[in-house]
């Protein structure tokens, strides 16, 4: 076996590696410091507290429902954006991304204006037996509003990556538009859709501002928990850092483990 010739690393590579190291330290140091700040016993005790576990379960549940609704409504939109050209498409795509850039407390106010009982949509849904202010449904739409762009953008990229001629061939082979979508487009774009769903779910889990405005304490599992991001802020504001720390660690650990697991599934087999 021949040995590769050694060459002095190029200046640019060295600088880039150093800068990458700095940014990684910036990301991981606070997480690592926080996660190692509470022992297993403290964490277990905190997890058994009723307002903590109901809060965590509420957050996971609401983010999951938000993602399911997002999949049902967002995937068709992503497909249309990927496949059709129409007047104002660029503007519409920009509009879809707006929830990412506006302050999320403002997003909460905006949602209140539409889904509050005194407003049109709020009244319509109230008539159907669904209220959004201080309910789980409110947490769901707050999470959905701020995180949907992640799913739509990713699904859109997925559909764009599917050669339109595959769909055309499927049609000439006897598939209807639905069958072509379900048997060709969806399976081929699925990885992007799944990855976007994971991002949407994760972003929904971490939402604070919009949830705080629309649905603070909500009835869930026989109690009135708050979303975990609000619980962390509440504990910090009312009882200080020591009280907030174990809840924070739990929230970070649960998010990290779930997120990394799902991302690994989503990225399995993808070559870059």
């Amino acid at each position: 076996m021949t040995k590769a010739l050694w060459r002095r690393p190029e200046g640019m590579s060295v600088v880039f590696i150093l800068l990458s190291g700095l940014i990684l330290v910036f990301i991981f140091a606070p997480l690592l410091k926080t996660v190692t700040s509470s022992g297993p016993g403290t964490l277990w005790g905190t997890l058994l507290e009723q307002d903590v576990y109901t809060s965590i379960l509420l957050t996971i549940y609401a983010a999951f429902i938000a993602t399911l609704v997002g999949l049902f409504l967002g995937v068709p939109l992503a497909y249309i954006l990927a496949r059709r050209s129409f007047w104002g498409k660029g503007f519409l795509e920009g509009l879809i991304d707006i929830p990412i850039v506006i302050p999320h407390s403002a997003a909460g106010i905006a949602l209140l204006f539409v889904f509050g009982q005194q407003f049109l949509f709020g009244r319509i849904f109230h008539g159907l037996g669904v209220d959004f202010v201080n309910t789980v449904a409110g947490v769901v739409i707050a999470m959905m509003f701020v995180s949907l762009p992640f799913l739509i953008d990713s699904a859109k990229d997925g559909f764009r990556g599917v050669d339109v001629r595959l769909e055309k061939v499927a049609r000439t082979l006897g598939a209807s538009a639905w069958q072509s979508f379900l048997r060709v487009s969806l399976p081929l774009a699925w990885r992007n859709i799944f990855s976007g769903s994971v991002m949407m779910w994760a972003r929904g889990m971490s939402e604070f501002g919009a949830v705080l405005i629309l649905a603070y304490h909500v009835p869930f599992m026989g109690h009135y928990p708050v979303a975990d991001s609000i619980l962390v802020a509440d504990r910090f504001a009312s009882f200080g850092l020591d009280s907030a720390r174990p809840v924070t660690v739990l929230v970070i650990l649960i998010s990290l483990i779930t997120f990394i697991t799902l991302r690994t599934i989503a990225c399995r087999g993808v070559r870059t």
């Binding site: 001629r165 595959l166 055309k168 061939v169 049609r171 000439t172 082979l173 598939a175 081929l188």
Partner: peptide, 20 residues
């Protein structure tokens, strides 16, 4: 008629085989 009702099969230059 929709494509699936016309009884025409198509083969493209790059074949467009279903990769999955």
């Amino acid at each position: 008629l929709y494509p699936e009702k016309r009884g025409m099969g198509i083969v493209y230059q790059d074949q467009a085989l279903f990769p999955h």
